[in-house]
Structure formats: structure tokens, C-alpha cells
């Protein structure tokens, strides 16, 4: 049963990561425009690389 000492914190931690990522994606408004997000990956604008501030 000693294994529980590791397993329970691990399961909570992994679940917590999931929750954290969900909250982060809500905060950064990633669910505002689902149709747009789906379409944006198909654009040809930055096929090589996104513009870099160093250019």
C-alpha cells in the first residue's frame, strides 16, 4: 500500500496540470474564435517561419 504515497500525489499533480492548462487557455482567450483557429493553420502567410523581431 506504500505505493499510494507516490501514486496519489502523482495523479493529483497530473490532473492539476490539465486543469492549469485549461485555465491558461481560457485566460488567453483561445476559445474565442474556434472557427478562425481551425482556419488559421491552413494559411500560407508564414509557411517558412513567423516574422522574427530580429529581422
Amino acid at each position: 500500500m506504500n505505493i499510494l504515497v507516490y501514486l496519489i500525489p502523482i495523479s493529483l499533480l497530473l490532473g492539476g496540470f490539465g486543469l492549469g492548462f485549461f485555465l491558461w487557455s481560457m485566460k488567453t482567450r483561445q476559445f474565442d474564435d474556434p472557427d478562425g483557429s481551425a482556419a488559421r493553420i491552413l494559411r500560407k502567410d508564414w509557411d517558412d517561419k513567423p516574422p522574427s523581431p530580429l529581422d
Binding site: D32, D33, P34, D35, G36, A39, R40, I41, L42, R43, K44, D45
Partner: peptide, 28 residues
């Protein structure tokens, strides 16, 4: 309605003087 629309609209608007940022929300 499509990916090409996003590029066309945003680049047309960014080409205008005085426009700092433009973002098309395809859902709305």
C-alpha cells in the same frame, strides 16, 4: 468564411495607414 479570407482581410487592413492591428474573428 475561410482561411484565405483571414489573410486577405487582415493584410488589406494592415496595409492602411494608421492601422496598428487587425484580427478577424471567423466565428462571429
Amino acid at each position: 468564411h475561410c482561411a484565405a479570407c483571414i489573410s486577405a482581410v487582415e493584410s488589406a487592413l494592415m496595409g492602411q495607414a494608421g492601422v496598428k492591428a487587425a484580427r478577424l474573428n471567423l466565428t462571429q
